[in-house]
Amino acid sequence: MIRAENLTKYYSDLCAVDHINLDIKKGEIVGFLGPNGAGKTTTMRMLTGFLKPTSGSIRIMGHDIEENQLEIKRRLGYLPESAPLYHEMLAYDYLRYASDIGSLKGGEKSKRINELAGLCGIRDVMHKTIDELSKGYKQRVGLAHAMINDPEILILDEPTSGLDPNQIVEIREIIKEIGREKTVLLSTHILSEAEATCDRVIIIDKGKIALDAEIDKLKQSIGNEYIINITLKNAVLEDVEREFHSVEWIAGINVSHEDNGVLRIGVACRSPEDMRGDLYMMIKNREWTLLEFQKESRSLEKIFMELTREN
């Protein structure tokens, strides 16, 4: 549905997006993650045709974006960051305007507006001016606007930013609901959100793609790699290293503290199974005194931080 090749955007000398390749298939919900200023918004703006790439090509639903912009705009819904709206208009008038500009026929417009009012939960505020609405409702009106033409692709730039936890859950539900039939690309910097709503995450950092993986596979690989932190007494480091070195599922050890015969070690394990029992038996056999024993799983947060940390 969305295919971008070598997408690059320079703002005068500043490189915001650096040779990105994207391939998003029909029906996917893709989370676009990255720290502030990583190039998420710029990429999305290029995909909607709002910005012109410095170089690279974008094809959406098989159309080249520069050649067939109108057709693409008709079939693509976009919610910009912080949902800017015409604040003097009534919510209903605004959606009416959006449906007028779109491709719907006369009778379908009212039906579609009504449908979206229900889906986005804005039925009670349709007669209010947008100025009067709270942030959450503005976001929903923006979401309804993005969907007014029943688009095949939805691009949502931080759809849940600035909302309270209840509203976040509600918007997430709406997105999941939409995502059953549509292709959705949403950006966020809340990782749990991507984990909860998306099929696939793309992490972008300094204009480059740092990770592109399906959530399920990512979770699996996270499950395969974990660290067991142990603290031992009466143990000599060389002995411990020798003991663990030959074990197949131990990827490495990391000594974080060594003092007066007390050793604090992180044992990196690579195995689909939980090896805590085996590790305990090894320690028991050597008659080391075990003071602490704790498993730490690699979370999405950790991956995110590792990938996007400075240097």
């Binding site: 709002f50 008709r74 693509l76 976009y78 910009p80 800017p84 709206l85 779109g102 606007h145």
Partner: peptide, 10 residues
């Protein structure tokens, strides 16, 4: 910021 909305409409 509605400029962005305007130009991404068809």
């Amino acid at each position: 910021g509605t400029y962005e909305i305007l130009l991404t409409m068809p």
